Computed example of a mutant assay.
Amino acid sequence: MNWDDLRLLSLIAQEGTLRGAARKAGLSPATLSRRLDALEEAVGQKLVERFQGGCIPTAFGADVFALADQMGEIALEVERTRDRQNAHAASGVVRINTDEWLSYFLTTRFAPFHEAYPNVEVEIVTSHRPYNLARREADIAIRPYRPEQLDLVTRHMGTLSFGLYCSRDVATRHAAAFASQQWASMPFVGFDEPRSEFQSDRWLRALPGSPVPWMRCSYGLGILDGVAHGAGLGVLATFLANDQHDLVAAIAHIPELDQDIWLSMHRGLRTSARVRAVVDFMGQVFSQYRETGR
Rank of each mutant, 00 (worst) to 15 (best):
H266C: 09
N242I: 01
L36W: 05
E137M: 13
R274P: 05
Y145P: 02
H229W: 00
F162N: 04
H253K: 02
R135T: 04
L204R: 02
A66C: 09
L221F: 06
R34Y: 09
I74L: 15
R143P: 00
W101K: 00
Y165V: 09
G92S: 06
S103P: 01
K46F: 03
R143Q: 12
D280R: 14
E49P: 01
G158H: 04
E77G: 05
G53L: 08
A250I: 14
F65M: 14
R50F: 02
N97G: 15
E291C: 02
A25R: 13
E197Y: 04
R270N: 14
V278M: 08
V227W: 01
V122F: 07
G20H: 10
A75F: 01
V235S: 06
V48M: 13
I12D: 04
D246L: 12
P194Y: 06
G16F: 07
L39S: 07
G234Y: 00
E291Q: 07
Y219R: 15
V189Y: 02
S287M: 04
S200D: 08
A62S: 14
R267T: 12
S272W: 07
N2M: 10
R109I: 11
L257P: 02
W203V: 10
R146M: 14
H266I: 03
V43R: 06
Y289D: 03
L152V: 08
R173V: 03
T292H: 02
L221Q: 13
G234E: 04
A22I: 06
L263R: 02
V94F: 00
H253N: 02
H156R: 15
T81D: 01
P112M: 09
P144E: 02
F178R: 01
A30Y: 05
I56A: 05
T107W: 05
P112F: 09
V153F: 11
V93S: 08
P112W: 06
F281Y: 15
R7V: 10
L240T: 11
I74P: 05
S180Q: 14
L32S: 04
